[in-house]
Amino acid sequence: MAEFKKQVPRPTPETQHFWDGTKKQQLLLQQCDQCQHTYFPPRPFCPKCASTEVTITQASGKATLYSYVINHRPLPGFDNPHSIAVVELEEGPRMMSNIVGCPQTPEALVLDMALDVTFEALTDDINLAQFQPAEA
């Protein structure tokens, strides 16, 4: 299915800082100066209280596995099968990612397992935040 080729993100003015961050191997979130809510994906105001006073913060890169599927249908740009996961960051927000560096099986992918961020260069400008099992 040609329309589902591996898609390269095209940053917008509101998300540019996030992609600048991943290029430097940093995972950036935003925190509201008023209510302290830390959130993702990026936008220049707090989704909880609508304050526009927000600060960009760097996440620790530690996360846990919240849920996932293992895609078995062939997909350009991906090894088959491959995980599509939602991870919960130490700071609270969740994000979609892939779990890499381990077998793509239910036995290896256990909910709530500890994960660390790692970055995959998609193009010269875009790094994707991926996660791998945390070192014991």
């Binding site: 299915m1 589902f4 591996k6 898609q7 390269v8 993100p9 095209r10 940053p11 917008t12 998300t15 992609w19 994906p41 849920s67 996932y68 599927v69 895609n71 249908r73 997909l75 740009g77 991906f78 491959h82 599509i84 996961a85 939602v86 994000m95 979609m96 990612s97 892939n98 909910l111 998609l122 994707l128």
Partner: peptide
């Protein structure tokens, strides 16, 4: 590729509903 799903979900290989709708179930 510049929408929110295009930036923050599609690059991870969600190939339509079978790999999106199903993610919460585990």
């Amino acid at each position: 590729s510049s929408t929110l799903p295009g930036q923050f979900e599609m690059p991870f290989g969600v190939a339509g509903p079978p790999t999106m709708f199903t993610i919460p179930v585990l």
